[in-house]
Design a protein around this nucleic acid. Structure first.
Lengths: 180, 180
DNA sequence: TCCAATTTGTAGCGACCGCTACGTTATGGC
DNA sequence: GCCATAACGTAGCGGTCGCTACAAATTGGA
């Protein structure tokens, strides 16, 4: 039996990624944090890209689960409330590291790096669909557009946060939520 | 007289940065693109951080000038129009590279890297002030908060764009502008 | 028990990183 | 013309990067 399974490794790697960021995601440090060697990472994953892809997949699953528990499938809310609560959740201590990583992923994707681009787009689509499902059934208007607006607001606030302007982020979310 | 002045070098470096991104910003490639050597970059700039700081300073100036020409000092617009026009401008071919670089800068800043953090925060503050100045003088309500909301919306759209979801970005901006 | 497959360790390759030591060339004030 | 200083070239240091070659250990089935 192996010392660590692929899934156990993935868990620690996701945590290290959340903690230290994508920029620090080189094989040797990741391996060390997981109590193994770069050699073994490349035994379980054919190369670094596959590792990252798997890690982001696991992370997206985790994230979805967290959102799900705060906002179970079937529940809905009007746009303003949806944005307000999503803002609170994503800016909380639990998810702040994930949002930072999300920005890093987006940055890499914007330069056409892979697998960041496709993985990032897939996660984004997932979130858009998730939000859309939580708009009230009787919501009048363009549902995908409203979902996009909510996600953009959350991501925009994340950028203000990332640059240390928490007050501005709070104000922005408040202002936008008020008007949806 | 030197082959290149510090300012000439800075110009080319800014362009290379816009074109290739922060991730590709290592001394030797930057120098090559500028027709010189890493040795000379470190002759004019004491180290890489100083180079980047200077480059981002120059870039911010350039950006401000571009925004200024589209929206001269003294002119104002109601929030919805301000957002709509800022969205168009920042998403245009001219500024798209700058927005990508902006996301990369934010990503680095979110991990506490310097000089990215302080430079990014300064640029952000500059934009917030710039937007606030362009809100109508008789605007009723929290001016800084509205400026933050507009900036967050633009940045959020930039993230959707960066991940290749231009339609969603357009829809989001439209949806948000409609409601400010 | 033996053997083959899985799992792990050790070492190192070639490439790139930021940065520096050191020597040479060019320039402008006197 | 002389000389200090500014400008530049060459070479290389110590480090990290992703990845691989190769061999040793461990395991489980026949």
């Amino acid at each position: 039996m192996a010392k660590y399974s692929r899934e156990e490794l993935l868990e620690t790697i996701v945590e290290t990624l959340l903690e230290r960021g994508l920029g620090a995601a080189s094989l040797r440090p990741l391996a060390k944090a997981a109590g193994t060697s770069d050699r073994m990472l490349l035994y379980y994953f054919k190369d670094k890209n596959e590792l990252l892809q798997a890690a982001f997949g696991a992370l997206a699953g985790r994230l979805m689960a967290q959102l799900e528990s705060a906002f179970p499938e079937g529940t809905t809310a009007p746009p303003s409330e949806l944005l307000a609560r999503l803002g609170e959740i994503t800016r909380g201590a639990d998810l702040k590291p994930a949002m930072r990583l999300w920005i890093e992923l987006t940055a890499a994707a914007s330069r056409g790096e892979e697998p960041h681009g496709s993985v990032g787009a897939a996660i984004l689509d997932g979130f858009l669909a998730w939000i859309e499902r939580r708009l009230p059934a009787d919501f009048e208007g363009d549902r995908p557009a409203m979902a996009a607006a909510i996600l953009a607001a959350v991501d925009g606030a994340a950028i203000l946060d990332a640059l240390g302007r928490e007050e501005a982020a709070t104000a922005a979310l408040h202002q936008l939520a008020e008007r949806l």
